[in-house]
Amino acid sequence: MPLTQIRAFHRPDHIEGVWHLLQEGPEVRLVGGGSELAIRCPSEVRVLVDLAYLGLDRIELADDGSITLGAMVTLTDMLEHPELRALPSGVIQEMMVHVGSPLLRNAASIGGHLARGWLSDVIPVLLVLDASVELYDGEYRTTTLDRYYRDGIHNGLHILTAVTIPPASNGRAAAFLRFSRSAYDHALANAACLVDIEEGRVGTARIALSAGFRAAARQPASESQLVGSGFTDENITAAVSALEIDAHSDWLASADYRSHLARTLVGRCLHLARERAGGGS
């Protein structure tokens, strides 16, 4: 049944035009790729604004090696892009083959996916890759993806226009793991990590996890258990113990089981990353 509440479908070709429409209020929603709106449209929505005509569908490589994805780049584009596949441990590909199915990845845009701010397998991976996002709210601004969620920016009025992944240094290893009821299902919990090993010690360590419906978050307390130390079993155990897990009970799983899963996944990710880094301890 058509969404008869929708009165208009706009297709602006410049960002100011989108911003102008968006400021009209909660009755205006952005359409980026395959749309959750088509199946779960809030009743107040009256106007749809398509972002397809802004030229946001490009993947650009900067001289410093960073990669910028326009908001309308599809998840399939990301999966297939050679520079993204070359990121540490092939972690983008490792993660992306589990995101939905080709039918969803072919239509879903990275901007739309991140702006939802829900449980996602993409978010923890981009968090450990230290991605930043470009927003437009009358002017362009940039923030880290971590702050985008941690500070609630994703809930504010804005247009997410691009994602930038900084260059990867050599010697980094990453891993992603998820846990779900079946192969084609939302994760009950997921985790990603990225580590640098310098002279036998952990230089950089980034850990992100989610154990519920909210977007993943970085784990600074856990990361600090590793940085500057040897990548030993003991330190991995300490990092897992230091996780701050915001799990809740629902009909899918209990909070204690989700917490257990999250700890298990982080521990396994760290062991996997150490293996990929060539031992290290």
């Binding site: 192969a183 084609y184 299902d185």
Partner: peptide, 16 residues
């Protein structure tokens, strides 16, 4: 019933 769509009520997919 909480499981009213095929995202929540899982039937085996080809990957399962």
């Amino acid at each position: 019933c909480r499981t009213t769509d095929l995202g929540r009520y899982k039937i085996p997919s080809i990957s399962d």
